[in-house]
Amino acid sequence: MPDMVSVAEVADTMFKLVKQAAGLKKYKAMDLEKAMRELYGDRVDKAVSKAAIKELIDSGRCVYTYFGGSYIEIPHTEAAANPQG
């Protein structure tokens, strides 16, 4: 049994990916999960990736966005949004 990567570490790695890609590429939940598998191999599983995404969203470090499909991004003001009244 390999040493599993912690949820916190996976969340940090995901956050870096999302932040670096801001404005260039949007990640879906499954894209992040696949990226973690590529990076950590069998040291990360579905449950850990899922918990890491949950951590990112619940802490407010990332938000879900919707542009045709649902994506995970860092919070920002989007082009379509009107200022708050």
Binding site: A80, Q84, G85
Partner: peptide
């Protein structure tokens, strides 16, 4: 579309804005 929702949720809110907010300010959001 866009980033509107409640903390922790990625569904349940559908973002919609008017593209004439000056004319119809009460439906800007």
């Amino acid at each position: 579309g866009g980033i509107v929702g409640v903390l922790g949720y990625g569904g349940g809110v559908i973002g919609r804005y008017s593209d004439l907010p000056e004319t119809w300010p009460n439906v800007s959001h």
